[in-house]
């Protein structure tokens, strides 16, 4: 059983919602990223989605675009992101790590080489936003051979007849995109999310987590009520943007930076 499966099962048994922060690796630098990852775990993160920076993030809104640009300005590479995960694993073998990004850096590294390196580093899952299930067979096979989960998105626009092909390819958890748009947009249509999640429940036993547009304790609680967990990205990355590009940071400042995650944890824990 994969680490993500274990985390999800344990959470379900404890009636606890999964809290999944997203941040871009190398923003503002790799040292700060690892410090933030450890701190996020202390504040109750179950899984961390680590963004692999890519020059052309066409599914991301301005907040994450700028984070990616900051990271790339430091020369962050996929190799370095994998090294970062290996370092994180030296002191944490419990928290799930999912790499989220676009296909080209993985394609250029080579699927097999990437899978081997990711597995050796302690990566648990991969979410490639521009790789839909119908193009994913080859990468999926390689990732599965290395016991790495392949996570896929379901969007409000996803047709009913495609859901089966997505859930077939998906393992770990299913990522429901709460809105039509890019990361960081405003979530307005709670009713359609409810209806879509309920319909997904009938089609899969995978844990379902909701992302895009969750920006505070209130929206985390609202979405947490519907799903098995929530992903918070832009609202966290927006705060990370305020950190100076240095290795050491004031502890209080870091707590302030990730406050949205602490507050979301608190709100999610009140749900049950």
């Amino acid at each position: 059983m994969s680490r993500i499966n274990q985390i999800a099962e344990k959470a379900a048994a404890e009636n606890r919602k999964l809290l999944i922060p997203y941040l871009v690796a190398g923003d503002p630098n790799l040292e700060t990223t690892i410090t933030l990852m450890r701190k996020l775990v202390e504040e109750g993160a179950d899984v961390i989605e680590l963004g692999i920076p890519f020059s052309d993030p066409s599914s991301d809104g301005p907040v994450i675009q700028r984070a990616v640009e900051r990271s790339l300005a430091k020369g962050t590479t996929l190799h370095q992101v994998l090294d970062l995960v290996a370092r994180f694993r030296e002191s944490d073998t419990i928290t799930g790590i999912v790499l989220m990004g676009y296909l080209n850096p993985i394609e250029i590294m080579g699927y097999k080489k990437f899978a081997e390196a990711a597995s050796a580093s302690g990566v648990d899952g991969v979410l490639t936003v521009d790789l839909p299930p119908m193009e994913a067979d080859e990468l999926n096979a390689v990732m599965r051979a290395h016991d790495i989960d392949t996570i896929f998105l379901v969007a409000p626009t996803t047709r009913e007849d495609r859901v089966a092909s997505i859930t077939e390819h998906c393992s770990g958890y299913l990522y429901y995109v709460s809105l039509k748009g890019v990361t960081g947009a405003a979530l307005t249509d709670f009713d359609s999310v409810t209806a879509n999640i309920n319909s997904l429940r009938e089609k899969t036993k995978l844990p379902i987590v909701i992302g895009f547009g969750i920006k505070d304790a209130e929206s985390a609680a609202a979405m947490g009520q519907l799903a098995d967990g929530v992903i918070i990205g832009s609202a966290l990355v927006e705060k990370i943007a305020l950190l100076a590009d240095q290795v050491e940071h004031d502890a209080d400042l870091l707590s302030e930076t990730i406050k949205v995650i602490s507050e979301a944890r608190e709100a999610l824990d009140k749900l049950v």
Binding site: L131, P132, A155, P156, T157, T158
Partner: peptide, 14 residues
């Protein structure tokens, strides 16, 4: 070739 876009756009492309 192929189709390499985010899930939100798949329905539109199809």
């Amino acid at each position: 070739g192929g189709v390499f876009v985010g899930e939100t756009l798949i329905a539109a492309v199809e």
